[in-house]
């Protein structure tokens, strides 16, 4: 008995929590394991996106046509430039974050605060850019018709230029207005009536000989299939709804799942960036108040830094799978 007791006392340091096989503190390790689980969550989302894309591989929207806006350049086709800018902003704010961590290791309080401040600014610019991107996506540009089967019909003229439905729809007199609960006993629900009706678009299309329909289907060279005038006239009869912009149910860019995944994945990522900015602000004020100076180390900065880099890391993948591939 005595022998066992003695062995036990030798092991006391092992079970007392003094050993650090990973040479990392509890907080840092838990941040890492949180990041691992969050990484798996994001890969789940991105793989689900890829699944839908593979399922609709011959009709998926072309990202270059969807995200082609740049601030102050109206009507200019500028694919990629804006997201590229956003990517650089995020990478740069990642760099200022590592510099803050590095300054923390050297216990330089004012330097840590300065770099944290730059990081927060970068994060705020990124969240703002994402909001602007969402605004453009939701507003839409050209509008489209949706068929009974849920396919999107877009319009181009003979010069291959996209034409907005607002430009050619004829104005027909209509008595139709949104049905409201105050006007009916058997009211269930009706979505608000669109400003342009299907019949107006159809009439305008028939009137204008130059217009053709562009379907969701991709041809062998990866472009959207364009129907001939006769096919277009036949196709437009299957349209049942006008779609302008994008939401979770309809979107004028093509497959509805595209908008759903866009909102969900960039929204979830944007939420991460937002919470990252909030956490960074809290830590920034702690740095200013000298909390970590008193504590003797800046490990807290390192931990939020890990989270911040992770957000950047996820964006690298979102950027590739939404905008490039």
């Amino acid at each position: 008995m005595e022998l066992t007791a003695k062995e036990h006392s030798e092991d006391e340091t092992l079970w007392g929590g003094d050993k650090q096989p990973f040479k990392a503190t509890y907080g840092k390790m838990m941040m890492w394991f949180f990041i691992v689980s969050d990484a798996l969550t994001f890969s789940g989302f991105l793989v689900a996106y890829s699944f839908s894309r593979f399922k609709n591989i011959d009709s998926w929207p072309i990202a270059d046509e969807v995200f082609n806006h740049f601030p102050f350049l109206h009507g200019v086709n500028a694919p990629m430039y804006y997201v590229a800018l956003m990517t650089f902003v995020l990478i740069f704010s990642s760099v200022t974050m590592v510099l803050a961590v590095d300054a923390g290791h050297h216990m330089k309080q004012s330097k840590v605060a300065f770099y944290m401040f730059l990081t927060i600014i970068g994060g705020a610019i990124f969240v703002g850019s994402q909001a602007w991107e969402w605004k453009n996506f939701i507003k839409g540009e050209y509008g489209a018709l949706e068929t009974n089967g849920g396919q999107i019909l877009q319009f181009i003229n003979t010069d291959d230029k996209r034409i907005s439905i607002e430009d050619f729809a004829l104005e027909l007199p209509t008595e139709r207005s949104t049905h409201e609960s105050s006007n009916g006993l058997w009211f269930s629900y009706e979505p608000s009536v669109t400003e342009i009706t299907v019949s107006e678009v159809k009439a305008g299309f028939k009137n204008n000989e130059e217009l053709l329909i562009r379907t969701e289907k991709l041809n062998s060279s990866g472009d959207k299939t364009i129907l001939s005038r006769e096919e277009s006239l036949a196709k437009i009869e299957s349209a049942i709804q006008v779609v302008q912009g994008a939401n979770l149910i309809h979107n004028e860019y093509g497959n509805r799942l595209f908008a759903d995944f866009f909102f969900f994945i960039t929204g979830f990522h944007g939420f991460h960036v937002f919470s990252g900015v909030v956490i960074n602000i809290i830590i920034f004020f702690n740095v200013l108040m000298g909390t970590y100076e008193k504590r003797g180390h800046y490990e807290m900065v390192e931990k939020v830094g890990l989270y911040w880099h992770f957000v950047d890391l996820v964006w690298v993948f979102v950027f590739t799978f939404f905008y490039l591939v």
């Binding site: 990642s94 974050m97 890990l306 890391l313």
Partner: peptide, 19 residues
């Protein structure tokens, strides 16, 4: 990003592998 910004390069191989 992971190796240099998140300092995985400087971590113990046990932690590195666990992640």
């Amino acid at each position: 990003i992971a190796w240099d910004f998140m300092h995985i390069r400087d971590e113990k191989s046990g932690l590195k592998n666990a992640i």
